[in-house]
Amino acid sequence: MERHRILIVEDSPTMRQLLVFALKRLKGAEIVEAQDGLDGLRKVTSDDFDLALVDINMPVMDGLKLISLIRDEDGLKDMPIVVITTEGAKEDRDRALALGADEYLTKPIQANKVLAIAKALLKIE
């Protein structure tokens, strides 16, 4: 069975648990959690991931900074990134996408949307 390593970078334990619940339904999903941008950067640079879900508003290092640092890494330029935030405004979405995010989810999140986006980015039928 093909495995899919997914990194969730989110400071809210509630959101992390919800995302884990949603993504665990993907066959072969191996989920790693990070509680802020710095923790996420450490994990993403020390291990291989097929997908990262990143919250924008986080302590220590925010999601936008994390995305720009990830895209600066040679081996991580193509890793799909989904941004999760409370902001629904188009300019926030454009900013995240311009920095290198592939998709954008707004809170409150819906498990089926998370799954659909993850499947599309991981190219799962």
Binding site: T14, Q17, L18, F21, A22, Q110, A111, N112
Partner: peptide
């Protein structure tokens, strides 16, 4: 059922937290 499952997951997470 999928929707119900998602809703229950949300309620479970809220209660657990």
């Amino acid at each position: 059922i999928e929707e119900e499952n998602n809703n229950l997951a949300n309620l479970y997470v809220a209660s657990y937290q």
